[in-house]
Amino acid sequence: MKRRNFVQGLALGAGVGTLGAMGAYSYSPARTAFLPDIKRGTADIGLCKSVKITNISETSWFDNSIFMQDVTASGGLLVDQYTYNWAPFGNGKGPGKGTYEDGMKNIGPYLPKNLEKAWEITRELSEHADNAGAPASLKSKLWTARKRSTCLTAAGTTCGWINASSAKASTKCSPTVR
């Protein structure tokens, strides 16, 4: 047997063995020592007759290279969105030095009545604010009681982009309340 084949077999065996051990562990009684069972309940929310979803935007970032520069400068993928100092929670302290609280101190007084002023402030204080798009969709549900409810779900932050993209959906950008 060649050394190369031996090392390949050893690596493959170690990988398969590791996956097998993880699978066996996840079905063993030892799992509950670290991952206790969670009691889950249900809630009656009524009956939904129909759901209509209107896609408004699928754009997360306009330039992925700028996005990755921000991620790297802030400490990597495990850093939350507030620490990155992205819009709308930027505080002007630079990448990796943001907090939700600091960001809201700057724009909180303008929400929800003056989104344009809040966006003007956050553009100045956030890292690459104009690179952020805003994936969004409009969900409309018709319940059996003939009651209709509509919800705009926007995971992004750029109100101007959402407003331009949502002209067909007849909706406006609204702030997310944490």
Rank of each mutant, 00 (worst) to 15 (best):
P112Q: 07
V71H: 07
V71M: 14
Q69H: 09
I66M: 13
G90C: 05
G75H: 00
A132G: 05
W86Y: 10
D130W: 04
R123E: 12
W61Y: 14
S65D: 13
A129M: 04
E116R: 01
G133S: 02
G108C: 07
G103K: 11
G96F: 02
S74Y: 02
K97M: 04
L77R: 08
D80P: 06
E124K: 09
T122I: 02
L125F: 10
Q69M: 10
W86M: 07
E124C: 00
E120I: 00
L78T: 10
I121E: 02
N64Q: 13
F62C: 07
Y84A: 00
R123D: 14
S65V: 11
W61N: 08
L111K: 09
N64L: 15
T99A: 10
G92Q: 03
G98K: 08
A129T: 08
M68E: 15
G76Q: 01
L77K: 05
N106C: 10
P109R: 12
E124R: 04
G90T: 07
G103L: 11
E101L: 06
Q81E: 15
P95I: 01
S126C: 13
A73Y: 04
G90V: 04
E101K: 03
R123C: 13
A134D: 14
R123M: 06
Y110M: 03
N85E: 15
P88H: 07
L77N: 10
N106L: 15
N91C: 14
A132S: 12
G103I: 11
V79L: 01
W119V: 01
S65Y: 10
F62P: 15
F67N: 11
G103Q: 10
N114D: 15
N114G: 08
Y100V: 05
V79Q: 00
N85W: 07
A118T: 01
G92E: 05
L115D: 05
A87I: 14
M68W: 13
E124V: 11
E116Y: 04
D130R: 06
P135M: 05
K97G: 01
